[in-house]
Design a protein around this nucleic acid. Structure first.
Lengths: 218, 218
DNA sequence: GATTCGGCAAATGTATACATAAAAGGGCAA
DNA sequence: TTGCCCTTTTATGTATACATTTGCCGAATC
């Protein structure tokens, strides 16, 4: 594996996991030294983070981890709705009914509310669902547009992490989406996605208000 | 301006304009020498092109200009619909009525069918409309998702270039979208966008079928 | 004659040296 | 004491040298 890929993945995980908090300064030399690569691959990794929107230019010379507040999450979900409702519609029209039937069954069988281990398994299942969606939609432009959205979503998930009731509802919502796709019902798939995203956003926003404001070190 | 930016813009224009045809091999050293920069900024420029999807990996070691056939254009417009209908809806809800009213007037006054100079002016007007849309929507995720879409769209436009009748209809469609946004009518803005994209896609696809297949040198 | 193995060449991946510019800190002057 | 300017430092931007991997070509063997 290339050094630039390792550096990129490390930084993405640290940003998503909160180890690198919003506002943290990302300097080429500093990060390169910390992760044990030279400046060239680190430069490439940082370039990808900027393209993803996880890192942004604060001033001509200084890059910082992008902030991520309630307004950002609302904007993220607006874009998610646009892309994922379309993806659901297209998958229902084109997708492999068997594959989505099996995914629906897995969602029905999932019990992510029974511990953090189960929650992680559940997120892995969602990742497989997303991958199946990409295959079914068969549209590189849509898939590419979704990539950074999902990277930001991981940050939002962490904020609202481990709300047992929400996770229990979420599996049922995903199961319905998968079933609608398996049944070849585009409108139901799209509207079930809308419902799911509405509930997910509402839950995340209420988590934020009840938790401490997510402020990184300046 | 940085050397990597110059290299990136040069390559984008050459790909959009067809000077670098689909399938053309993009080698770091070769392009760096041709454009008079060193490999480091060229490497960054090529990385951005790959992220945009204008260049793709053909094999582990060789990058080529991405193909762009009728199927790609259909996929591109599916994604465009998802993003631009949402953008139109949001702009109608939030946008500056005066700004879009003025843009609508400019569209009503445009006559792009009267020569290639007028057509270029018209594309510049569309670019200003897109910029106004980005401001009105005020959603970085949506704007970022639209960026590569627009880069690919420029390739599609070139294929269907200068169809006088189509351009005349296009201004009217854009005027309606701008008026709907100015009037604060989200549904009309979204559906007018849908209609516009439907006509644009139909026109481009028929141009392709009647023209010689767009094959680049292998 | 075909297939496989080995070597060679050319490309990318990485490291580092050098250039340049911006920001911060200190010193001097008002 | 404060503000401005100059210097110094440290950052990024660029170029280039070096390492590594891959793909191809040729020769030898089966």
């Amino acid at each position: 594996m290339r050094a630039s890929d390792r550096a990129y993945e490390s930084l993405v995980e640290e940003i998503q996991g909160g180890a690198l908090a919003p506002g943290a300064v990302i300097g080429e030399a500093a990060q390169a030294a910390r992760l044990g690569v030279s400046r060239t691959p680190m430069r490439e990794a940082i370039g990808r983070l900027v393209a993803d929107g996880l890192v942004r230019q604060q001033s001509p010379r200084v890059l910082v981890v992008a902030g991520f507040d309630g307004g950002d999450i609302r904007a993220l979900f607006e874009t998610r709705r646009a892309l994922e409702e379309t993806a659901a519609r297209l998958a229902a029209a084109r997708g492999d009914a068997v594959a989505f039937g099996e995914l629906a069954a897995e969602f029905r069988a999932a019990h992510p509310e029974s511990g953090s281990r189960a929650a992680d398994d559940y997120y892995a299942l969602i990742a497989r669902f997303d991958a199946a969606l990409d295959v079914a939609v068969d549209n590189v432009y849509l898939t590419q547009a979704l990539r950074p959205i999902r990277a930001h979503l991981a940050r939002a998930r962490r904020i609202a992490r481990d709300n047992a009731g929400r996770l229990r509802d979420s599996v049922a919502e995903h199961a319905l989406i998968a079933e609608a796709i398996a049944a070849g019902d585009p409108e139901l798939a799209a509207h079930a996605t809308h419902v799911h995203l509405h509930h997910a956003l509402t839950s995340i926003l209420s988590s934020i208000e009840h938790a401490t404001p997510t402020e990184g070190p300046q």
